[in-house]
Write a protein that binds this DNA or RNA. Structure first.
Lengths: 109, 109
DNA sequence: TATTTCTTCTACAATGCAGAAGATATTACG
DNA sequence: CGTAATATCTTCTGCATTGTAGAAGAAATA
């Protein structure tokens, strides 16, 4: 059915982090992954708002984790990308790739 | 001074098109470049709004072209990326690269 | 005046952002 | 034990920035 709505810059980054973290993707960890890997700042609010919106669009799903906590704290909420999200992600990545490929700013990246 | 505000997805795409088109970058052509190269839709309104915002931020500059028109029509307005815009562009591209590099969605792109 | 080419305008929708507040678990200590 | 301190994580709220569409307007030639 090909809706072709585009993902925002931060949405792309969040989904990339989700994929990287596989089954260890919960809020705090996702934020950490983004900041350490890319240096890009990501406030808690921004992150959760984005995750929530992605979930509304059906691009990610979530489930609350077991109370495994080694030391205090609230239960984690784990996220994972859905098939639909994967499709959208791929399309956005492809678009960027087509536009950036070959540029000096790109190769140097 | 490192402001580090992030570029939006479409802003990145527009800047990429600007760089590609070099001195032939005016509205209609930019739009064409984006759509033919990546398949991504870009309405006139969206494009000019984005160019205008980028100019306000000092990321692009513009000048009106000579009335060269081979056959009717209004004067073109040529855009080019500024040093500051280039810096911001590079940073955004780098962030994406760091997040995407190594992912299957990326290699496949 | 008709036609062509290109840009502006207007109004609204979607995304991004920050940090205080809230929830819920373990640990400390009487 | 009871309950306060502490640690972890997520929600909430309000606002700023970016994205979108297409009709309307400007300016040139035929």
């Amino acid at each position: 059915m090909r809706k072709s709505k585009h993902l925002g810059e931060f949405e792309i980054i969040v989904l990339a982090a989700l994929i990287r973290l596989a089954d260890d993707a919960y809020g705090v960890k996702i934020r950490e992954e983004i900041e350490t890997r890319s240096g890009r700042k990501a406030s808690v609010g921004a992150l959760y708002a984005t995750l929530s919106r992605l979930e509304n669009k059906g691009y990610v799903s979530s489930h609350t984790g077991e109370a495994t906590a080694e030391r205090g704290g609230r239960a984690k909420r784990y996220y994972q990308i859905t098939a639909s999200g994967e499709e959208s992600f791929q399309q956005s990545v492809r678009t960027l790739s087509l536009m950036l490929n070959g540029l000096p700013e790109w190769s140097t990246a």
